[in-house]
């Protein structure tokens, strides 16, 4: 079983890290795709952190009717096949979609733009962060917060100096996982954002496109992805260790 899990990745590394690794890595097709992937995933991670953190905090702290249902619905994209997510996005934000049609009238058009790539990534990856952040805020000991309040700390100060630092490793771990998920996004992106070099063609789309003509770039990008995945896991492990 160990060999089964290890062999494909090690073979990818061995085949990818060959003599033509650097020239291929520096070719425009590969640098374009890495640039597109880096900035779209970067933006989607920033948006995730900014928009999802408050939601996670509220869900961790307040109880209301239907909360369990809402939480389940928000988790849905985690288990939804990405291509289904893409179809959903298309039906809502596509040109003839629910919101897409009015947006189109207003002169805003999302499909086939880098914005569509970010939206596909956000939709499929944000729930990973939401789960981790919710767990993080829930894990903060309420007694510690109350002790600080008794000692005269305001609510903002409690959040800034108690809640936030205690939950932070969870948030960071969730963010790293969400970023990794965004980087690997394929199904929703190809359906919703299309594939154009330098604009919407991310690493995964590039690997797929390259597979069909020239294996070289596909191998190099795959090797890069293996290294990235390894680094991500290391980071997550060290974060988990810090937390524990």
């Amino acid at each position: 079983m160990t060999a089964f899990l290890l062999l494909p990745t090690l073979t990818l590394l061995a085949r990818g890290l060959n003599a033509s690794f650097l020239p291929t890595l520096l070719s425009p097709a590969v640098t374009d795709t890495l640039r597109v992937s880096l900035w779209t995933t970067g933006l989607s991670v920033l948006l995730t952190a900014a928009l999802v953190t408050p939601v996670a905090f509220l869900l961790a702290r307040f109880d209301f009717r239907g909360k369990a249902v809402l939480e389940t619905l928000l988790d849905l994209p985690v288990v939804l096949p990405p291509v289904v997510a893409g179809l959903g996005l298309l039906l809502v934000f596509g040109r003839t979609g629910l919101l897409g049609a009015p947006l189109e009238l207003a002169g805003v058009s999302v499909a086939f733009t880098p914005a569509a790539v970010v939206m596909a990534q956000l939709f499929t990856s944000a729930p990973f962060y939401l789960r981790a952040a919710r767990a993080g805020f829930s894990a903060v000991d309420r007694d510690v917060e109350q002790a600080a309040q008794i000692d005269g700390a305001g609510r903002a100060q409690v959040f800034r100096f108690i809640t936030w630092p205690l939950a932070f490793p969870f948030l960071l771990e969730g963010l790293v996982l969400a970023w990794a998920r965004a980087l690997g996004e394929f199904g929703a992106t190809i359906l919703f954002a299309g594939s154009l070099q330098g604009r919407t063609r991310t690493v995964t789309l590039s690997v797929y496109a390259a597979l069909e003509s020239d294996l070289g770039p596909a191998l190099v990008l795959s090797a890069v992805m293996v290294c990235v995945a390894f680094t991500v896991l290391l980071v997550v492990r060290s974060l988990a260790a810090r937390r524990g």
């Binding site: 086939f112 299309g194 496109a209």
Partner: peptide
């Protein structure tokens, strides 16, 4: 705006009105 991996995907994008 997009270069698709097969011709049916190309047709689909017009069919969907995108």
């Amino acid at each position: 705006v997009s270069e698709e991996p097969n011709v049916r995907q190309v047709a689909l994008k017009v069919q969907l009105g995108e």
